[in-house]
Design a protein around this nucleic acid. Structure first.
Lengths: 233, 233
DNA sequence: CAGTAAACTTACTCTTGAGTAAGAACGTAC
DNA sequence: GTACGTTCTTACTCAAGAGTAAGTTTACTG
């Protein structure tokens, strides 16, 4: 007789994953410092000493969460964006769709990765910064390829500027995606594809025209370092 | 004889502001839960009981920080964006420039407002949500005015869609601005105006063309709810 | 120079939560 | 069944930090 089947004596690897699942949930709700390891243990249906025996310390548990979730997210985006056709726009589109789907489905994962992670100041910052830049780098590369493809002759002189601009775009894109993902969760019936399309519409066209040399011309602002200011249409 | 002038017996209002200054710094570095009130007291050059006597509890102190900083930020943006010419693009431009200047100069303030604030789950969430939506609403209104101005006949049928789209744009804009602000701090010589111009170039052109009915058309993705898919140029 | 109200401090209490010591239950090999 | 290694728990220790009791100093007023 076994009243609760599957609820006892699991192999270590399985338990560890359960613990990490619980930890991600708790960290995402409360943040690193406010998260209670008692709560993690309770959620994982396990006692606290086992948690510590398997995973070390609170920091190590957080670290393991970050590593696992970053890996999952990068894989999700990468497999959607990289193994596709060569058109940068479509790759970006698929990547964004994958991202919004991922966030919608694994919200806690994203919260831990992007939001909770930013604020920590300890040694966690390094770990977190690495994971974040892994994501940003993927996007930066995507954007960079997009920006050099149309109407960019062998212009190698402003390569540094191109790199800087693509980094800026990538950061903005990820930030916008984050904010949009949170917004989308509060809007009933907003599908991940729809959110991705919104973001593409906002930014991609800007990129295309930017590549052709067009752009917004600032009026005479407080600091006029704009060079020759042309009138807007 | 007064060896350290200005270091003793200050009136309550002044001390309170010093305490809030210190609190903003500490909260921005460590987040709400990890922030130590001892550290706040030390930074404010004051003992802990005085801190509690004047400002109440840790939560109330955090609350007061949020309220004060949100007010400052909204004022900074509002006075730059609203008291200008009527062109929505220029207003947005001035607002963004003011924003990036503010973040560059009062980094801790923004961190507390936008980053730390998102994670809390307690009653703080309400306070924080109100302040954040105050900012978002300002931007949403700016964006909405921009979107209806060009080539939008008296089309009142998709008013709800317009509202939703402008909300999405506003969220994306603020998220992108946040990410860009952080990025800009790590790039030497990046001026607030330059960052604002980048963001305008990314998004404003997208908005303009979007208003004319143009947009990115997704390829045959996993979910093809795109309506009639026209080929991209 | 009292007297008094505000500004301010030292030195505590008490809760919460990270981390652990010591050992109990379970499964498996012989 | 009995030896042995793995899984797992009850019941603690200990430090950090929120919040406070009671008292001390300064400045101003009559």
């Amino acid at each position: 007789m076994d009243p609760q089947p599957g609820r006892k004596r699991l192999p270590r690897k399985v338990r560890e994953q359960q613990m990490l699942d619980a930890a991600v949930q708790v960290f995402s709700r409360h943040g690193f410092h406010a998260a209670s390891m008692d709560e993690v243990a309770e959620r994982a249906q396990v006692s606290k000493p086992l948690l510590y025996l398997y995973l070390g310390s609170k920091e190590e548990i957080f670290s393991a969460c970050i590593a696992r979730e970053a890996d999952r997210l990068v894989n999700a985006i990468g497999s959607a964006a990289l193994n596709r056709d060569d058109d940068p726009a479509d790759r970006l589109w698929h990547g964004l769709t994958a991202f919004f789907s991922y966030v919608a489905e694994h919200r806690a994962s994203w919260v831990v990765l992007y939001q909770q992670a930013r604020s920590q100041s300890d040694s966690l910052a390094a770990q977190v910064a690495r994971s974040r830049s892994e994501i940003i780098d993927t996007v930066t590369e995507l954007v960079r390829q997009s920006m050099e493809s149309p109407a960019r002759g062998g212009d190698g002189s402003n390569y540094a500027a191109l790199r800087r601009e693509s980094a800026a775009v990538a950061h903005a894109l990820v930030g916008a995606a984050d904010a949009l993902a949170e917004w989308a969760l509060a809007v009933p019936g907003e599908q991940p594809e729809a959110t991705a399309r919104r973001l593409m519409n906002m930014m991609w066209i800007g990129l295309e025209r930017r590549a052709k040399g067009e752009g917004y011309h600032a009026p005479d602002g407080p600091a006029g370092t704009d060079g020759p200011a042309a009138p807007r249409p």
